[in-house]
Amino acid sequence: MKRTIALAAGMAMGAGMALADMVAPADVTFGDYGDVEQSLTGVPGDPEAGREVMVSKSIGNCVSCHAAEDYADVPFHGEVGPALDGIGEYRTEAELRGILVNAKMTFPESVMPAFYKVEGFTRPGNAYTGKAAEGPLDPLLTAQQIEDVVAYLMTLTD
């Protein structure tokens, strides 16, 4: 019993800390090139988790548009976007964060979806049901998932 309480208190504190540092989608500040300097959570990203986000159809599904040698084990890489090999070498963390949050700030007119944006859509749906969205939308990825993907992309060096 005592342990459970301690654990619960610890969890609440962790969540509280994360919330305090969490940047909401509407509060993200972009630099001149669409880059985002500040971490969205203050918690360092986990590259392994980021890889999972990228290759899972039900999470980021980045693989549907981007290929990369590092996840060659995953079948069917798309070719709508550029291959991401070596991206950690020629892009900074801030640039990658910005591209993930809202790629259109870096590449106007891009077909790449904005993964951390909740407003300004035409006929937003309730996920893939084809029905209208009910209530406020969640971003496609959470703040921490964005940080995880950024951390993973930084490991893609040639």
């Binding site: 599904n61 890489h77 798309g78 070719e79 709508v80 077909v111 979806p113 859509f121 749906g125 496609l140």
Partner: peptide, 25 residues
């Protein structure tokens, strides 16, 4: 040419700008 939904994609995004490309399989 309207970009619909949370993915903000129009018919043209896939069928004009990207025909002949693979999107996943």
């Amino acid at each position: 040419y309207t970009r619909f939904g949370q993915l903000e994609l129009s018919c043209a995004s896939c069928h004009e700008l990207n025909y002949d490309n693979y999107i996943r399989a």
